[in-house]
């Protein structure tokens, strides 16, 4: 994962687990000694946004950028912070852009188009084969095209994050892998990560395509 480009854009359908992946990925980068910033660009969802974990990120020395208005939990206005430009320009940063769901959520990316030079960024599409709208190859490709059109950036990697929350099984992940593989072959985009709960990650076949990326659920409270 150290080979990923400096600017890492995380997109996908809402419910795919984008934010959970983005949070885990950001923490991992910091653990590997990187100077990391995560910008929560989600102006679509009112709940379960990475900005809610501000305290956790700060404690780990990670720069977190939420709304420009403050009030990170209750903000109901689609306000992007000018601070997002800082880590995009400052090349000492690895920056993770946690983008809102679907093409609508990805529209904000067009504003940063100048920073997305080919070869300078990765845009990872998080897939969950249990989400209506991304359950088969055709729909998923349409979904990706929609996001690429709005964001004016190209998907460079797929992340199979197929899950049913805590009930996720190895079979579920492998079912999702079929989808990811189908999309990967059609669009000629590699499967970069297979992201799943630690208990499932341990049981995945070793020859699975993509790097197995075990995650914890940070956004979902224990009682949920």
């Amino acid at each position: 994962m150290l080979n990923d480009k400096r600017i890492k854009i995380i997109i996908g359908h809402y419910g795919s687990g984008k934010t959970e992946f983005a949070v885990n990925y950001t923490l991992k980068l910091a653990e590997l000694g990187k100077k990391v910033a995560i910008a929560d660009l989600d102006i679509v969802n009112p709940y379960f946004r990475s900005r809610e974990k501000e305290a956790m990120f700060k404690a780990k020395g990670i720069k977190i950028i939420g709304s420009s208005i403050g009030s990170n939990i209750g903000a109901d206005l689609p306000a992007l912070s000018a601070d997002v430009l800082g880590p995009l320009q400052d090349e000492s940063y690895d920056v993770v852009l946690d983008v809102g769901g679907d093409a609508i959520g990805a529209r904000v990316l067009a504003r940063y188009h100048n920073y997305f030079k080919e070869g300078s960024y990765d845009m990872f599409c998080v897939l969950n084969a249990y989400r209506p709208g991304t359950q088969n190859v055709e729909d998923t490709i349409e979904h990706i095209k929609g996001i690429e059109g709005q964001s004016r950036a190209k998907v460079t990697g797929l992340i199979n994050n197929t899950h049913l929350l805590r009930d996720t099984s190895v079979e579920d992940v492998l079912e999702g892998q079929k989808l990811a593989k189908g999309v990967s072959e059609k669009l000629n985009i590699p499967i970069k990560y297979v992201s799943t709960l630690e208990k499932v990650a341990r049981l995945l076949p070793e020859d699975i395509e993509g790097e197995v990326f075990p995650i914890k659920m940070y956004m979902r409270e224990d009682w949920m």
């Binding site: 419910g15 969950n128 249990y130 989400r131 209506p132 359950q135 899950h163 929350l165 079912e175």
Partner: peptide, 8 residues
Amino acid sequence: MAKILMKG
């Protein structure tokens, strides 16, 4: 895959 994941 009978179940699907949806937002409330």
